[in-house]
Amino acid sequence: MSSSPVALTPADEQPVPAASRRSAFLGGGARAALGLLLPLGLALGWEIAVAAGLSSGRLLPPPSRIAAALWALAASGELWMHVEATLIRVGLGFAFGASAGILAGALTATLPPLRWLVDPSLQALRAVPSLAWVPLFILWFGILETPKVALIAVGVFFPVYIGVAGAIASVDRKLVEVGRIFRLSRWALVRRILLPAVLPATLTALRTGLGLGFLFVVAAELMGASEGLGYLLLDGQQFSKPDQILAAIISFAVVGKAADAALVALTNPLVRWQDTARETL
């Protein structure tokens, strides 16, 4: 943005002390360790129970067997192929769904006639459970990549559309007046007031959309795929390999969390001005 702030004196770079003061109660490392305590404890308990012969672990394999399955998949290169296939689908679906959602949300929020025309239909479509589209998409697009990407895009579209439209509709009129007082042109008003004002809510909508993208990629891959983490799940079920199912689930968790973290890391610099309760919650 061309209105980038002008640094005047070097003595100004004082970070906000609030966050660090609060977390001094429990250091960042200690907090992370606390969060790991429960899953690690449960895993260890189950491992011991199976090792002691209290359970066969046939339906719920102990962590060591899951780790072995995961390791075998990773070592053979199979895991990366599946992860890559899943990520490409989510990436494409997210890109299409999010761009369409941002465009539709921005247009309907700023042009009332368009909103009256389009929004009721979109809201009606939103009420359709996205999975209900699966048979139709298969009929239309076949069984290869297109119906999968389309399903994910539909899933991503709605939260982004709702989020962006809502964000634009709730921009503070008082800040818009500041722009008017300084006689900003229409375009400058959009660039210097509206865009930064809707950015936080838009990013939240994108995160929700990405989460739904991962939800729908599983559905899409379960409906027939020869690769992808969802395929790994289905394969594990058909050949009774619970360790493979759990390995796939863990991979989903890791990949989904990593994608979300990447999105947050990429976009956080844009909204670091925000005065939110994030630090206190």
């Binding site: 702030p5 500041v178 004002a197 001005w273």
Partner: peptide, 15 residues
Amino acid sequence: RLLPWLDVAGNVGFG
């Protein structure tokens, strides 16, 4: 009515 995404200098120079 300061713009929360601009620092103090950015707000003063806004107009």
